[in-house]
Design a protein around this nucleic acid. Structure first.
Length: 504
DNA sequence: CTGGGGAGGGGGCCC
DNA sequence: CGGGCCCCCTCCCCA
């Protein structure tokens, strides 16, 4: 009888083991199928997002044209008109010039800026960044940077913390339109390294980034580069399209969560039985999912840092090992009217923040809200949703002036003798002092404060006006030593003397 | 080849 | 000493 009982007990235990094994197998199969299913869903979502992106771009174009047609109010003019103050800037009829109306610090809403180019008259928008505002924004960004640098998580030791690098990526806005200037991001480690929970807080949004260490440092893609973010959270690499205002379906979860993490979505259909497995034996299919969701992460993180891109409250987006919880209300779309540089959430300052975030040189305090073009051609393709239009404008300027190549490379800010800390807001070119930037930016704005008293000519630089006035005076102070030729410009004399030398 | 203008850079002066 | 301001030089482009 006892033997029978023991036998039954053994059978029962064996059955239990077999049942457990069967359940495990079933769950594994379910998970595998689910992984494939999610892969397909993800692909479909990506297609949907691509289509949505195209639609949004089209909408943006339409809205941009509408704004451009009706947005003189977004134009501000530098109120530094030294020539005006000194009486040099006579308000002529604006032949080939661009002058600010006397007594106006800003253009009126209905006041277009006309630029007479000979016979034709065109209306153009001139974007001026008030230096005080931008510098204030710059200081704020610098403060933010210092906070980041104090964060121990920002050490460049990617080997030991590669798996938690996505946190870094989340607080380095990969978009050109990151958080508003007054928004401060705070990254706080909530728990340990194995289940590191970083919380990035802003004034309006709460970004909770939960990371589960699923793989070891061998997965190099855990660092920002892996996420398509360059150093210091640079934007995605070239070719990565930017979702205008990414509106990822909040219920679609790219979750590879362990059971140890409290799921915040409730939609993860993963079988909890098998998710207890060791990180080292994660199914290969999950890697695929990880890869698929990686691009999404860029957008998610972008959207998180683009205030205007947060569209739902309390959304939780789980991407790979990262959970992004978005709290707080935010506009559904980025209002193109925010391109008004004079407003608190000015796009220019967003530019500034973004560019500052990209600035590899922490000492650089810039007036430029423009993104850092140098080092990353890809930046132009990963602009934030809100400022795509202005970026396009700036790029057009850049290309039209043939200065893009100059702006790229270290030469933009690394001077030969002086540190070129002051960047043009339009082309990002660096100058050694603010006055140089101001003068240079007249190239883009068309501002010509120096007018000739004897003709309608106007100039952006006083020296050129002085040079011009020799036309009226007939003064030719530069005489050739080998002939009787005289010249009004020293350069002309120098060029002329090459004739005598036979140089070409 | 010359004239005119645009634009960048260097350096001096002053505060 | 650094920043702001100004002047000048220089190079380049175009007509």
């Amino acid at each position: 009888m006892d033997q029978c009982m023991v036998f039954h007990t053994q059978i029962a235990s064996i059955m239990e083991v077999l049942a457990n094994a069967a359940v495990a197998e079933i769950c594994k199969l379910v998970d595998d199928d689910y992984a494939v299913f999610r892969l397909e869903i993800t692909q479909s979502q990506k297609e949907n997002r691509a289509m949505r992106r195209k639609l949004q771009l089209l909408e943006l174009k339409v809205s941009r044209e509408r704004v451009l047609a009706s947005r003189p109010r977004s134009v501000k003019i530098l109120d530094r008109y030294r020539g005006m103050a000194r009486g040099e800037g006579h308000l002529t009829e604006g032949h080939g010039s661009f002058v600010k109306p006397a007594g106006h610090n800003t253009w009126r809403d209905d006041q277009p800026i006309t630029v007479d180019e000979g016979s034709g008259t065109s209306t153009q928008q001139v974007i001026i960044i008030e230096s005080a505002e931008t510098e204030a924004a710059g200081s704020g960004v610098k403060l933010e940077r210092s906070e980041r640098e104090e964060d121990p998580w920002h050490s460049r030791d990617t080997q030991t913390r590669a798996a938690i690098e996505p946190h870094v990526a989340t607080k380095d806005p990969p978009t050109i339109a990151p958080a508003p200037p007054r928004t401060r991001h705070r990254i706080t480690e909530v728990s340990g390294t194995q289940n590191a929970v970083l919380k990035s807080e802003t004034d309006t949004d709460t970004l909770t980034v939960t990371h589960r260490l699923l793989r070891t440092g061998s997965d190099h893609r855990s660092d920002p580069e892996r996420l398509g973010l360059g150093r210091l959270g640079c934007p995605p690499a070239s070719g990565s399209e930017y979702l205008l205002h990414s509106n990822p379906s909040p219920r679609i979860v790219h979750s590879l969560r362990d059971s140890g993490d409290a799921l915040e979505t409730g939609n993860d259909l993963s079988c909890s039985y098998t998710t207890e497995m060791d990180p080292g034996i994660m199914p290969l299919g999950l890697e695929t999912l990880t890869d698929l969701s990686r691009g999404d992460w860029n957008r998610y993180s972008s959207s998180v840092y683009s205030e205007g891109c947060l569209d739902k409250k309390g959304e939780v987006v789980v991407v790979d090992e990262v959970t992004v919880k978005v709290e707080g209300d935010a506009p559904l779309t980025w209002n193109v009217d925010k391109t008004d540089l004079g407003e608190g959430h000015s796009q220019g300052r967003d530019f500034l923040n973004y560019r500052e975030s990209l600035e590899t040189n922490p000492n650089v305090t810039t007036q430029s809200p423009l993104h850092t073009v140098r080092d990353r051609e890809s930046v132009s393709t990963s602009m934030g949703p809100s400022n795509t239009q202005d970026h396009i404008l700036f790029d057009q300027v850049l290309n039209s002036k043939g200065q893009k190549a100059k702006a790229q490379g270290r030469g933009a800010t690394s001077g030969k003798s002086k540190e070129k800390r002051f960047l043009c807001i339009f082309c990002n070119k660096g100058f050694s002092c603010p006055q140089k930037v101001e003068i240079h930016q007249r190239v883009h704005t068309g501002e010509k404060p120096f007018g000739c008293t004897q003709c309608h000519m106007r100039f952006s630089e006083a020296g050129n006006l002085k040079k011009h006035q020799r036309v009226h005076t007939g003064e030719k102070p530069f005489s050739c030593t080998q002939c009787h030729m005289r010249f009004a410009q020293a350069g002309h004399l120098k060029r002329h003397q090459r004739v005598h030398k036979g140089d070409k």
